[in-house]
């Protein structure tokens, strides 16, 4: 079982769009996949037409393993399951703080899922808190959507700096360019510059696309309704690159 986190310190960069479509691509390539919606906003859950649970289950999520499995829902697609967002996730940090080994709790909780899944994808909320550190420990690879702008460059450096200061392995971090626009000079310049500076960038880029914006109307991963020739198929090549980096068959 491998774990992919879709993460960024910045909000609104395409983490959820990536999670949802990577999960769809993985399942359609034959991998038993579980998408965990760690963001209390529940955007991933919404795209899969799931109702988010209102009960306060934050504590039990981290304390009882059986509960975790019970809350999993099958999606509309074969081999793709979702653990829906839980509104109590808001209190994660407070809870994690009160527990021992609190930075590895998520990693531990995922271990028993190994029997059931080939791949786990974590859709993460944008922040640099204790939950984020749990994510960094649990993930085998962290994909980071980067919109090619100066501001994004700075937040990306901030993430690398955080990894350095805490002694996490930077090798896990694999950024990719998100919402790129070909006509935009700033974009192309930043892509050139950052691509040269960081060899860890994945080759696949997700261009800005109205089809992706419409996911909220369709309530489906864009791969489920886009044509075979659509540029959004880049999500599949993104998945293939990640799968290769993870040594998945």
């Amino acid at each position: 079982m491998r774990v992919i986190a879709s993460y960024s310190i910045k909000g609104g960069v395409g983490k959820t769009a990536a999670s949802v479509n990577l999960a769809y691509a993985a399942a359609s390539a034959g991998h038993e996949t579980l998408l965990i919606d760690l963001d209390p906003q529940g955007a991933s859950s919404f795209y899969f037409r799931l109702r988010t649970s209102k009960k306060d289950r934050g504590k039990s999520f981290f304390s009882r393993r059986g509960r975790l499995l019970k809350n999993i829902k099958g999606s509309n697609y074969r081999r793709l399951d979702i653990l829906p967002a839980n509104l109590a996730f808001r209190n994660f940090d407070i809870m994690l703080n009160s527990m021992q080994k609190s930075k590895k709790k998520l990693k531990q909780i995922l271990i028993p899922l190994d029997d059931d899944y080939d791949l786990i994808i974590l859709d993460c909320p944008p922040n640099l808190t204790l939950l984020a550190e749990n994510i960094f420990n649990a993930a085998d690879i962290i994909v980071v959507p980067v919109i090619p702008t100066t501001l994004s460059e700075r937040t990306y450096d901030q993430l690398l700096g955080f990894f350095d200061s805490k002694g996490y392995k930077k090798k896990k971090i694999r950024p990719f360019f998100s919402m790129t626009q070909q006509q935009n000079r700033l974009h192309t310049d930043t892509i050139n510059k950052m691509g040269k500076k960081h060899s860890s960038f994945l080759k696949s880029r997700i261009g800005f696309s109205q089809e992706i914006e419409k996911m909220g109307l369709h309530r489906e991963p864009v791969l489920a309704y886009a044509s075979k020739k659509s540029p959004v198929q880049a999500y599949r090549s993104l998945f293939n690159e990640v799968a290769k980096a993870l040594g998945m068959k």
């Binding site: 899969f48 037409r49 799931l50 099958g74 999606s75 509309n76 074969r78 309530r219």
Partner: peptide, 13 residues
């Protein structure tokens, strides 16, 4: 096909 709820969520294939 699938049997769905009113939000188009599949419940049974």
């Amino acid at each position: 096909g699938s049997l769905q709820d009113d939000e188009g969520k599949t419940l049974v294939f």
